[in-house]
Nucleic acid binder design. Structure first.
Lengths: 211, 211
DNA sequence: GTCTATACCGTGATAGAC
DNA sequence: GTCTATCACGGTATAGAC
């Protein structure tokens, strides 16, 4: 085969790119197949219905992502004293693997995270799909944050996480709005700036509300 | 006519509710018409194409919303000393009119703001539609924040606003995810808690990054 | 097992008749 | 204002090639 990629991987990559931009209903099996350079029926053969393709794409990168975020947390916990890592260190561990993923030269991770933005903000998909793949990881981080913020109530921690999640997924979405609003001073694809501001911003927010 | 509402208002209300949940592509003119209890062609007759219906719905409430947010800013500026209002006061003026709208007994505003969440996070619609209706208002608030945070660079102000915007629109989306994540301790529709935490959280974030 | 071609049948947007 | 026809598109099943 001339390409390294198998056809079924091409189908998932195409689906990922299209779902990221157009959401579930804005994509057709025919467009996915066309972008992947394969016949319409092949996606169906490999992955079943359109809904199965969607879920398969959403799940494909989640394990490796959760893995690296868990490792980042363990690393900062290992180097901390008996009080555990600071809020900043925890937030940084939570966010840096995402910055790294978005900065990869390949567009796959960028597309995937834009899809996460779509799912997270969807009244249809948000609750079910985000929870099933990411809640376990988030709970581990909440435990770490509770230790760093001993006066916090659970309610405060979850609402603070909600704020972080919204800001983060808007960053994933890469809409270009900040480019326009700032008249070019900021760019949606400037991840260094996005995360460089997000980490101190979110840390201060958690400490203010939960302090 | 038995109902107070005109048919064309019913069409816009139905479209608003459906677009809020399903996004642009997840909604059909037939479903809008069916929910409004009118014939398919009537929506077309009143508002033109589906795209026009979408834009019409998005614009319908924007002016009154911008108006009340502008008034809230002017009110807190009027009661401030010559240094102008604090960051907290500005953020509060920006957010409280939204809380009030979401708390209205009628679902119209809730649906509208969920639609804003969809648009804000969409790579397709976000840049163009959010900018055309809301950037003028945001710039007025940025000016006020710049005065309250004289050491801030423009880049910092815009990235902080980006964080606020993401958290806010996730709150609009009403996905129910926080209900599940918190095992019922927090609820997506508990606006008092959402804004009560958001205002100090965001104020601290702005001050940390721009201080 | 992998893949293509094609067919089926429902649904959708929209224009034009009334 | 309303009803209906048109015509394109979409999900998916099937037949069979390689």
């Amino acid at each position: 085969m001339p390409d390294k990629q198998s056809k079924s991987e091409k189908i998932l990559d195409a689906a990922e790119a299209l779902f990221a931009v157009h959401g579930y209903d804005g994509v057709t099996m025919r467009k996915i197949a066309s972008m992947a350079g394969v016949d319409v029926a092949l996606a169906n053969y490999h992955f079943g219905r359109k809904l199965d393709v969607f879920q398969r794409v959403f799940e494909r990168r989640s394990e490796s992502l959760n893995q690296s975020r868990l490792e980042a947390l363990h690393a900062c916990q290992a180097s901390a004293d008996e009080n555990g890592p600071s809020v900043e260190q925890i937030i940084e561990a939570f966010l840096r693997p995402l910055e790294t993923a978005q900065e990869a030269s390949n567009d796959g991770w960028k597309n995937y995270l834009a899809l996460v933005a779509f799912v997270n903000n969807s009244p249809i998909w948000g609750k079910k799909m985000m929870s099933s793949l990411f809640d376990d990881l988030v709970q581990v981080y909440i435990v770490a944050l509770r230790k760093a913020l001993p006066n916090a109530t659970d309610e405060q921690l979850y609402w603070c996480y909600h704020n972080l999640s919204g800001a983060l997924t808007l960053t994933f979405a890469q809409t270009g709005r900040i480019d326009k609003l700032s008249k070019g001073k900021c760019r949606s694809d400037d991840f260094t700036a996005a995360y460089g501001n997000m980490i101190p911003f979110m840390s201060a927010g958690f400490k203010q509300v939960c302090g």
